[in-house]
């Protein structure tokens, strides 16, 4: 399956502005910074969360805790795929008991990743609230999950792929829409 680039829907500058806005929204909704923590979902949720933390620090002068969640072991398609995808370490080096946790991911699509992330998170303790921040919401939910903070709503077809690129992993900040093109027979 080949991928054809269709459009660039977010530049580096736009991404920075969007994340800054989400940081403000998080602070507006959670004035009690004491109990606020961020948890990034691997992989690209992690740099997103790191940037949100930087923005929050710039705005409020407080560095809030940041955790990393790997959801591989909680996926619901392990059996179906009959495969063992690579697992990585979760790193939440603080108690989430009674905390307000903002889960951060790059793209919200079927909602299954978030479902897995919620289960994974609850195994670390009982937060007082969990909110969800995503850079892109592309629709097509398969389970009843919604985001509290959305960078950009992007209506897509299932034939399209949203690729969020970040400097830390891909060397560049941008969001592209690709279209899946079936291979020639």
């Amino acid at each position: 399956m080949a991928l054809k680039e269709k459009a660039r829907i977010m530049t580096a500058e736009k991404m920075a502005r969007t994340l800054r806005r989400i940081a403000h929204e998080i602070l507006e909704k959670n004035p009690d910074m004491e109990n606020l923590v961020l948890v990034g979902i691997k992989r690209r949720g992690v740099p997103m969360a790191e940037r949100l933390r930087e923005h929050i620090e710039l705005i409020e002068g407080v560095k809030i805790p940041l955790g990393i969640l790997d959801i591989t072991m909680y996926r619901d398609d392990l059996e179906a795929k009959n495969c063992s995808p690579e697992v990585n370490k979760s790193e939440i080096n603080f108690s989430i008991e009674g905390k307000r946790v903002v889960l951060v991911d790059d793209v919200l699509y079927t909602g299954r990743t978030v479902r897995a992330a919620l289960d994974a998170l609850m195994d670390f303790g009982r937060p007082s609230a969990v909110q969800l921040a995503v850079l892109i919401d592309r629709g097509h939910r398969e389970i009843p999950i919604r985001a509290d903070y959305v960078g950009k709503n992007v209506p897509t077809s299932r034939n399209e792929v949203i690729s969020v690129k970040v400097k830390e992993i891909d060397g560049v900040d941008e969001v592209l829409i690709h279209e899946k093109i079936p291979d020639e027979p």
């Binding site: 992989r43 959801i71 072991m73 996926r75 392990l78 059996e79 795929k81 009959n82 495969c83 063992s84 995808p85 690579e86 697992v87 793209v107 699509y109 990743t113 792929v161 949203i162």
Partner: peptide
């Protein structure tokens, strides 16, 4: 146990 019981080919990442 994970690698043997989930067996088979290595999968792709999420999304």
């Amino acid at each position: 146990l994970y690698l043997l019981l989930q067996g088979g080919a290595k999968g792709e990442g999420a999304n």
